[in-house]
Amino acid sequence: MKRRKMSKQVVGYSIVGAMLLALSAPDLGKGLALTHVHHPAQTYHHKSVPTLAPGSAESILPTEPGAQLLAVGPSTPGGSVAPKPSEVQPPGPPTTPRAERPPSPSPNQPPGPADSAAPPPTPTNLQPLYRLGKLRIHVIDGRTTKPLSGAEVVLIETEQRLTTDKDGYTGWFEAPIIRNPRYRPLIQELHGQLGVVVYKNGYRDSVHLGIRIHDEAPAQATVWMYKIGPGDTRIEPVLYEEPYHHLWLIDLADRFRSKSQLGEGFQHP
């Protein structure tokens, strides 16, 4: 299958098209995550996938017909949950993550034509669109495995902030299913991956990366936190990174196996 290179412009037009499609279907987001949607793994595995242009990786969208695409809500510091899918609107002004936002024009700068009309969306100022899944975080004390209430959980990708209840759980919230764009042309990952940072007074910060999130099933992750003791002089965050699912690793290794160098060979009973 021949792979086609897509320029940034083409990618931008396809995103605009996807957004127009989303706008024309107002109830697109109803029942997201728990509804029966086509599994993207099946889609990407059989389709030719464009080679990613540098800097545009996150803008390549799942574009199969009928796919439910939603914008990730803006960061909600202090908020407990993300906006409901029905409330999520494609952005008027660009609402890319803070670090990626283009610098705002100086107040002294004369208003140009761009101020009177919205600038044409480009991959750099468009908010990426992702499917959403349900996620909740469970925070426990790493030594006693008792739940920790009142811990603050920040989802890195969206900057959503949540607080754990008396059982150590955050509420269920919607989170984007982001698959590693590096692997998209090679083999579709079986699940998305997210990261959280958890803060709790008296404890080391915990960074938990690679949380698996699925299209059609709610996901939860347990974050272990460690109390700061009197002997702790150099206090740094604790990192835990969830490994890839081994079914995906088998797939990945099999994909590039040649007949002349079989290695461990294809899976067999």
């Binding site: 081994h246 079914l247 088998i250 797939d251 067999h268 009973p269």
Partner: peptide
């Protein structure tokens, strides 16, 4: 059980009395 192949009934695993996860 073993991983097996995607989108396939994996008959060879039945012969081996192992379930294919896929």
């Amino acid at each position: 059980y073993r991983a097996g192949d995607k989108d396939s009934p994996n008959w060879q695993y039945r012969n081996a009395q192992k379930m294919a996860q896929w």
